[in-house]
Design a protein around this nucleic acid. Structure first.
Ligand SMILES: [Mn+2]
Ligand SMILES: [Mn+2]
Ligand SMILES: [Mn+2]
Ligand SMILES: [Mn+2]
Lengths: 142, 142
DNA sequence: CAAATGAAATAGCCTTGGCTATATTTTCCA
DNA sequence: TGGAAAATATAGCCAAGGCTATTTCATTTG
């Protein structure tokens, strides 16, 4: 099946809308990735640990988790830890891999490691599938 | 004068805090850049044009402009156009230049132009001064 | 096994950035 | 030049993502 020729002209408004959309996913992505990390490292993801790592107050984390649940990415029962749904786990994997690739690309073009790690935390959420693939090709071809 | 050796260990919480901070600047930056563009192109920046280009409703733009004014980046009188302060104009220039550099870097590592333009709209706000300089060196050295 | 301690939930507040509907002001033209 | 049309402002709503203070529940321990 041939690709649709998407030669829509791309207005500034479209770009900004897309950036806003990415933004609304960003926090979700970070939480999901971190819940995955905590389960991996500690066997479970507790609200207190999530809050500490995100650098937010505990009720802020609780609220974020409620949103994850609403969006079908996580499950939890009151006073118990947080778990990822299949969908959540898949997203976590994707986000983690993308994060690494972004850091590697930054380093590859000359950004110091520490800075790369800092900047990647925000940048990653705006890197499209297409850009990600370009990054991977670039890194492989070096 | 020697650089301070800033060997603070960088926690995840620090990184997330920084990404949140960048986020709170992002919209401000986009508006300032756009007001600058409109003044350049049309001689003035009207609320309706700003709203249309940002892809938001007119009252949303009005509110954003109020914030620009509060932050000392713009001036305006009721029912008149918007102008940038010296600080606002300087920020607009910086943001515009950074946007271009980010697009160029993306293209340089193999991202298609259109995609680069789309992704850059979000990425730019998370690119630190240090990363930006690395990007410029990379582009020059190609 | 009853407190005490610790963790999570809840209540209630704030700001930002969206929106629609409506009021007000400016501009333009018949 | 007076009214219609266009532009802008204002009012009031919503959700997200912060926060602090307090309540509720679970766990540990004397
Ligand atoms: Mn992130
Ligand atoms: Mn990340
Ligand atoms: Mn932008
Ligand atoms: Mn931009």
């Amino acid at each position: 099946m041939a690709e649709q020729q998407a030669d829509e002209i791309q207005t500034p408004a479209d770009r900004f809308a897309r950036a806003r959309e990415a933004q609304s996913m960003a926090i979700l992505e970070d939480y999901v990735e971190m819940v995955g990390d905590l389960i991996e490292e500690l066997g479970e993801a507790r609200v207190a640990d999530i809050a500490a790592r995100m650098g937010v107050a505990q009720p802020t984390a609780t609220k974020a988790i409620a949103r994850l649940k609403r969006e079908g990415l996580a499950t939890s029962r009151p006073y118990r830890g947080v778990f990822l749904t299949e969908e959540g786990a898949a997203l976590a994997d994707k986000v983690r891999a993308r994060h690494r690739t972004v850091v590697e690309l930054l380093v590859a073009v000359g950004v110091p490691e520490e800075v790369a790690e800092l900047d990647a935390e925000g940048i990653e959420h705006h890197v499209s599938e297409q850009s990600l693939q370009a990054f991977e090709r670039f890194l492989k071809a070096r």
